[in-house]
């Protein structure tokens, strides 16, 4: 069974905006029947302001396809078309607290449905600009088509090069046999043969750019906060982690820190430390800034 986040499950079991929008003036049909995921997105757009008034989806697909569709419609409602087009597939995945690597294509499908619908609204023709192959590297979610194309355009000949150019195979290394096969196939196109070296492939991946699991990420953030607390406690203050929601880290400033004029400076300092540790941008906010509905859980 896939490891779906609570949020994915929630959007699958109770999808938002399911069904076609009545009087829709934009439609986007994308997906692949052979893969078993296809989506029709219908929008009702205000012709004056180009604001998306209503969004509805109809999806033939798995749990994460339905959840991604539901998330997409929630994200874009109320946005103008131009604003909506800035939504990336990562935004959809983030909204759902992440998707398994094999399922990231569901979020890609969501973004493409949106592009197709906007093109349809504007009377343009939308063409898919990429082809997706079988997933080869599960650590970094790299598919066969990307590997083949990278080998061709960069004239790669070794697994090591493929790892350096695509990241595929840079993790657990279980897919190296598959990468060798792809290399052999592509090299054969130009009459070359793949010559593996006798020694095992030594690949140096400096710092794994892999996305941490939510749990690992949470632990890292906690560790940073724990390391800061003694300093604050010396000044009779304290900080407590309240919640992590995507890029937002909510904390409570306590004791002398609460209401301290330097609080925002302290938050910035904490933010910098966490960004350093995670290698990604986060925003550290006081818990008062949390959206209301979510505070109820806290």
């Amino acid at each position: 069974m896939w490891e779906y986040s609570e949020k994915v499950q929630e959007h699958f079991f109770s999808p938002r905006n399911a069904g076609a929008v009545a009087d829709a003036n934009a439609t986007g049909d994308v997906g692949s029947l052979s893969c078993g995921d296809a989506l029709r997105l219908t929008l009702k757009v205000d012709p004056e302001t180009e604001v998306i008034l209503e969004a509805g989806f109809q999806t033939f697909g798995c749990g994460s396809a339905i959840a991604s569709s539901s998330a997409l419609t929630e994200i874009i409602k109320g946005k103008t078309l131009d604003e909506a087009l800035k939504v990336t597939n990562q935004d959809i995945a983030d909204y759902l607290d992440g998707l398994p690597p094999e399922k990231m294509h569901c979020s890609v499908m969501g973004r493409e449905a949106l592009q197709a619908a906007v093109a349809n609204y504007r009377g343009e023709e939308w063409k898919d600009d990429h082809e997706e192959g079988a997933l080869v590297c599960k650590c970094f979610a790299v598919d066969s088509v990307l590997i083949e194309e990278t080998i061709r355009s960069n004239k790669l000949t070794t697994v090591e090069e493929v790892v350096n150019y695509t990241k595929a195979g840079g993790g657990c290394s279980a897919c190296h046999e598959g990468i060798e096969e792809i290399l052999a196939g592509v090299l054969a196109e130009s009459g070359q043969t793949f010559a593996p070296s006798a020694k095992s492939v030594a690949v140096a991946m400096p710092t794994p750019p892999a996305k941490m699991t939510n749990l690992q990420r949470m632990h890292r953030i906690e560790t940073v906060l724990e390391s800061i607390r003694p300093t604050l406690q010396r000044d009779h203050g304290d900080v407590e982690l309240v919640d992590i929601d995507g890029k937002n880290v909510y904390v409570d400033m306590k004791g002398a820190c609460a209401g301290c004029q330097m609080a925002s400076v302290t938050l910035e300092g904490i933010q910098e430390r966490i960004i350093d540790e995670l290698g990604e941008f986060v925003r550290v906010l006081p818990s008062q800034a949390m959206p209301r509905a979510e505070r109820a859980y806290g």
Partner: peptide, 25 residues
């Protein structure tokens, strides 16, 4: 089926494969 683009009310849409022919994505 209520969520499916191939379904409408009590049965499949007419000529389902034509009515919904998504662009490959």
């Amino acid at each position: 089926r209520k969520l499916s683009p191939y379904w409408s009310g009590q049965g499949p849409v007419e000529e389902p494969e034509k009515a919904f022919a998504p662009a490959y994505a």
